[in-house]
């Protein structure tokens, strides 16, 4: 499979909703799509990365209104275990049509939960919209704290926005300070589990989106499944987005493909290296467990 996965169309887009753009990381694609899907009854609720007791630590929540979606808008560079709520959303919350947003690995987990619903009773046909976000790697909360507080020298609670782009990790504070660090210094903090990930642009999502490839304030959007296509067409018809053809924006799809190739090549190498990391008594290599071969 191509590093960008199967898709029906790819486009640069930006929300037309000013409230969402104020809170969103880039083009506000995910928030706007969920708001549209809620409005249209395509979903009854969406599992999103909501706020928690600590600054910048996301906690999964089921959003059933635009206000709740807005509270969850924007990127937090640490994982929100959204799959935690996937069964709960159909039970305690009683949702028949669930939206979920996740990193590529979380969308993989969603599809596995649908195809092999081992402990996911009555979930498979209730996933109405799975939105994926581009992801190079992820950090534990403590790692994010170290980056913001030690490297960038800012307090977590005073940060207004965090952003990754152009080779830098950037922190913007409420009072206007801007702190930066080179992205390559972050690598030692990356969760080990991210090094075996072979998906950059959420290949298995209905629609996936991320800033890479599009100009500032815009997002690149891959429309992938039949379901995703129907929702995207509806949202466009409803005037939720302004769009530009991807081949008419800078830096364009080539950069997405370049980063996807880099990530997958690097991680495939890591997966392969794990096969021969150790040594058996007979002199042959001893490997670690490979989830792509067997449980």
């Amino acid at each position: 499979m191509d590093v960008l996965g199967n898709y029906k169309s790819v486009i640069a887009a930006r929300s037309t909703d000013k409230d969402i753009l104020k809170k969103s990381q880039d083009g506000g694609i995910i928030t706007t799509l969920f708001a549209y899907a809620l409005e249209e009854g395509i979903i009854d609720g969406a599992i999103v990365a909501g706020p928690s007791a600590e600054p910048w630590r996301p906690e999964p929540m089921v959003a059933t209104s635009k206000a709740e979606l807005l509270a969850a808008a924007g990127t937090r560079y640490t994982i929100s275990p959204n799959l935690y709520l996937i069964k709960e959303a159909t039970r305690s919350y009683g949702l028949d049509r669930v939206g979920i947003v996740g990193t590529p690995c979380q969308i993989q987990a969603t599809r596995k939960a649908q195809l092999y619903p081992i402990g996911m009773r009555d979930v498979d046909d209730k996933i109405a919209l799975a939105l994926g976000i581009f992801c190079m790697e992820n950090l534990s909360y403590q790692a994010l704290e170290a980056i913001v507080e030690d490297h960038c020298n800012q307090k977590m609670e005073s940060v207004k926005k965090m952003d990754i782009g152009k080779g830098k990790f950037t922190v913007y504070t409420e009072r206007g300070a801007v702190s930066q660090m080179p992205l390559k210094l972050i690598h030692k903090y990356v969760q080990p589990g991210c090094h075996v990930c072979l998906d950059y642009v959420a290949n298995l999502a209905d629609i996936s989106s991320g800033s890479v490839g599009s100009p500032d304030g815009w997002s690149t959007v891959f429309v992938r499944s039949m379901k995703g296509n129907a929702v995207w067409d509806g949202a466009i018809a409803a005037g939720c987005f302004e769009t530009k053809p991807i081949d008419q924006v800078k830096p364009g799809l080539d950069l997405v493909a370049k980063l996807a190739t880099e990530k997958i090549t690097k991680n495939q190498k890591h997966v392969d290296e794990r096969k021969t990391v150790g040594l058996k008594a007979d002199g042959t290599p001893k490997g670690l467990r490979n989830p792509y071969e067997s449980p």
Binding site: I79, N82, L83, Y84, K87, Q106, A109, Q191, G193, H195
Partner: peptide, 16 residues
Amino acid sequence: NQGLCMGCGTCAGTCP
């Protein structure tokens, strides 16, 4: 322990 967890939350969502 095998360096494979990325914290997606599936296990917690699954546990009966």
